[in-house]
Structure formats: C-alpha cells, structure tokens
Computed example of a mutant assay.
Amino acid sequence: MRIDVLSLFPEMFVGPMQESIIGKAIKNDILDLNITNFREFTTDKHRHVDDSPFGGGQGMLLQAQPIIDAYESIKQQVSSEGKQVGKVILMDPAGKKFEQADAEMLAKEEQITFICGHYEGYDERIRTIVTDEYSLGDFVLTGGELPAMVMIDATTRLLPDVLGNAASAVEDSFSMGLLEGPQYTRPADFRGMKVPEVLTSGDHKKIADWNQKESLRRTYLRRPDLIDHSKLTKRQKELFLEVRIEEENRN
C-alpha cells in the first residue's frame, strides 16, 4: 500500500512512523509512506499557505492552491507507478468519527492521501478533491498530523503480513463488534493473583466459552452500546444472559 500525507510539518512523522509495527511494514516494503510539505507548492514568493477569510472572521485559512497542486503532483506519481489513485482523506473536527470498520475499509485501498490542516480551517474549495472527512472525536487538536498517524497505524496493522499472527487483527477489540476480554500469561500465580483455572484446563470448548463470556461481560459493563443483540450467535446470547444475571446478582 502507498500512503501519502500532505502536511506543513513532515518532521512530525519521522519518529513515530519509523518504529514498531509501522516501521517494520515500511522496511519490508509492505507500506510505502510519503510525506509531502505542501508549502513547497505555493506560488507566493513569501511561501504563504494561508490567508485571512473573505467576509471577516477569526484566524487564518489554508489556501486551496498549494494543497490541490501538491495532490495533483501525487496523482501523477501514483499513476506513473501503475497504481490506482485512492481515497483523499481530510482530517477535520467536523468529519465522521474514525472507527475500526473504517480502518478495515481503508486497508483494502491501494493508495490513500491524507490532508493535515492547521490554523483556523480550510478554504472550502479544498474539499473538491476530498473523498472522506474524519475526526478522532469531539475535541480539537492543533493540527491533523496526530489524527493522521493514528489512522495510518490502525490501517497499516491490518495489511497482510504486517502482524506476526494474522488472527490477532481479527480478534482485536471492535473488529468482532465487542471489546476483547481479559488475557493472561506466565506465571500462573503472581503475588497471589491467579490465572482463572479454566484457561489452564486444556478444555478448548470451555476456554472458548470463557473468552466469549468475558468479552461480553467487559462490553456490557464498559460499552453496552456496542452490543447488538440481533448479531449475537445463539451461544453468545446464552452467555450474555448468564453475564447479565451474574452482574445483577453482584449488584
């Protein structure tokens, strides 16, 4: 996959995007990450990329010309590589809240472009090249770089051969619609805190039921809005009923 980022601060991507899983994906040629400073595409002799809004208002707006020209240059590069030009994502507080399903959708793309803004906002004409707008939540950051990094991380880890165990991505929280339940590793007894006996029993059916039940329990207690009863399997419904009775009795 090729990912392009338009940013005024390309240095922000140097450290985070070269470490851990993302760094390995780049090293193994699974991910081709390109950061473009769209200031380089300005036609203004002072290299301004922003200006005051028509009609008045607070702050400065990013101009359309440098960003659109930078994107058109990227399109030419992508096409020359024989790749399909993909989605253009604008990082914006008014955008759709980014979720796991969006990462799964983006992971199927051959190429993606992220536009990271700064200042008060964008010239509306920038949106003529945008296919999707995303936000991480109902809060405001100083720029779109950090949200773009989060989306790149969430998307890249879903690419084939990026994670050592392909099942890891499938079993992640949210991928199956539920939160992931508690997990344990050695030692079986740490300072008197013991691993649940069922996990060391060797009974695969009981272990599977326990994992499902605890996943349902954690989701029920922390994010009940994620539980869609119509999508639960028959066995999940049975386990969920047990969870609700247990939690009601506990309270």
Rank of each mutant, 00 (worst) to 15 (best):
Q111D: 12
E171K: 09
P10V: 06
G121Y: 13
T185I: 05
E247R: 01
I74W: 04
D161N: 14
A167P: 01
E133K: 01
R244K: 15
L106Q: 06
G59L: 07
L62S: 07
R217I: 08
E133G: 00
L199I: 04
G59M: 09
R250A: 13
V130P: 02
W210K: 05
V49T: 15
I3R: 00
P16L: 14
A208N: 08
R244D: 00
E104A: 14
I35H: 05
A94T: 09
D209R: 12
G95M: 14
L239V: 06
R47W: 06
G202P: 02
G23T: 10
N211L: 13
D161F: 14
Q183T: 15
T219C: 01
S201F: 07
D102Y: 13
D203K: 05
S175D: 07
E104F: 09
D123G: 15
R235F: 14
K194R: 10
C116K: 00
I115H: 08
V49W: 05
R127M: 13
Y119E: 00
Q236H: 10
G177F: 00
R186L: 04
K205P: 04
V5P: 03
I115R: 03
R127L: 13
L221A: 07
L163V: 10
K75A: 15
S168E: 11
A154N: 08
E171V: 06
Y119T: 02
L62I: 07
E238N: 08
Q77V: 07
L146H: 08
M1A: 10
L33H: 02
L106C: 07
A169E: 12
T219N: 00
R235N: 13
L31D: 03
V150E: 01
Q77S: 11
R125C: 07
T200R: 07
D228P: 08
L6S: 03
K87F: 00
L159W: 10
S175W: 08
D209H: 12
G177N: 03
F41L: 02
R2Q: 07
I129C: 01
E109G: 01
I30V: 10
I35W: 09
G59F: 15
T36V: 05
K206E: 13
E19C: 03
V130F: 03
A25N: 11
E247W: 04
V198R: 04
T219R: 03
P224A: 12
Q76R: 08
E124L: 04
P224I: 09
G56R: 01
S173M: 10
D172H: 09
M1R: 08
D51F: 13
I129Y: 01
E109V: 05
E81K: 13
M1P: 15
V130Y: 02
I26F: 10
T219D: 00
N249G: 10
F54Q: 08
N251Y: 09
Q65H: 15
A70M: 07
R218N: 11
R217V: 09
L106Y: 15
F240L: 09
P53K: 09
M91V: 12
Q65V: 01
K108E: 12
A188C: 03
L199Y: 03
I152Q: 06
E109I: 05
D92I: 03
L31N: 02
M12F: 15
E40G: 06
I30P: 05
E238K: 10
R39S: 12
K87A: 01
S230G: 08
F54L: 14
V130N: 00
H46Y: 15
I74A: 02
L158K: 13
E40Y: 02
R250F: 03
I112F: 05
F41Y: 11
E247H: 01
V85G: 00
E110L: 04
K87Y: 01
G202Q: 04
